[in-house]
Simulated assay, not measured.
Amino acid sequence: MKIKKVLNNNVVVSLNSRNQEIVVMGRGLAFQKKVGETIDAAKIEKTFVLETYGISEKLANLLRDISEKYLNISARILEYAKSQLPYKLDEYLYVALTDHISFAISRYKQGIHLKNPLLWEIRKFYKNEFQVAVKALEIIKEETGIELGEDEAASIALHLVNSQLSGENVATAIQVTEMVNTILNIVKYHFKMELDENSINYERFLTHLRFFAIRFIREEKLEESVDEFFFEQIKIKYPEAYACTQKIKTYLEKEFHFELTKDEELYLTVHIYRVTSRQKFK
């Protein structure tokens, strides 16, 4: 295995047998080594594959300023996250998490503890990601001896949520969270009820809202395909759910100048009916 790029004395980029870029870590692995020279296999402690072009360059820039131990922590966290989450994680997380963890620990050592204003929403709406982030705090403690709080778990969870947005920034994930929270509140106030957050219907509704918000932020509208007769029947059959959808529509138009398509109105109406009517029945 030959060195393609030296990131620092302990981290290099090489190629595997499938010609994929891999990051190889080990103490003194690249000490006094140059590009093209062979890696001592006995010194290799960790490897991971990079499928996305340009990530190794970003890692190289990052590791000029911070220790590779934070990259090792990120790699452990992402290995665990991949086993727990149902979607593919964006490889930029190696960079984003490494940078975030380094900065979080630096702030901790300086006695600076930042509150995450979305802690409650993230813990509630992104349960799987938050649980992975809680495990991430355990990994950080194992590796550094430093115990970070739930606010940092919420921030790590946001990075995982953001991974679904194909490299878009964390501000986008925050906007998705806020939009979902507002729509859920519109439903609660309209029906004057608390929703059963443990129900399958709630999870389905939440999933629909998340992806709806992501589509909106990316400006990916659904193509109009709804049958007019079917749409009118849904309005008649589920009048309260449709009235709630109209409130959501008004909110989106007022706050974001965004108009729902009839398909989106229909899907929202059906999901709202399902999540509220079954709860009323119970």
Rank of each mutant, 00 (worst) to 15 (best):
L7V: 07
N8W: 02
V11C: 05
N16G: 15
S17T: 11
N19R: 09
Q20H: 07
V23K: 01
L29T: 14
A30Q: 07
V35N: 12
F48K: 02
V49S: 15
T52D: 13
G54W: 06
N61Y: 11
D65P: 07
I66E: 05
S67L: 07
K69Y: 06
K69N: 05
I77W: 00
E79Y: 06
Y80K: 15
K88C: 03
L93M: 06
V95W: 09
L97I: 06
I105T: 01
S106P: 00
Q110G: 03
I112T: 02
K115S: 08
N116C: 07
I122Y: 03
Y126L: 08
K127V: 13
V132E: 03
E142Q: 15
G145M: 11
S155G: 10
L158T: 00
H159G: 01
L160Q: 01
G167K: 14
G167E: 14
V170Q: 11
A171W: 09
T172N: 08
A173E: 03
M179S: 07
V187L: 06
E194K: 11
L195D: 02
D196L: 05
E197Q: 12
I200H: 13
N201H: 10
E203H: 14
H208S: 07
E219F: 08
E220T: 08
E220W: 08
K221N: 04
K237W: 11
Y238W: 15
A243I: 09
T245M: 15
I248Y: 13
T250E: 12
H257M: 00
E264R: 01
L268W: 10
Y273F: 15
R278S: 14
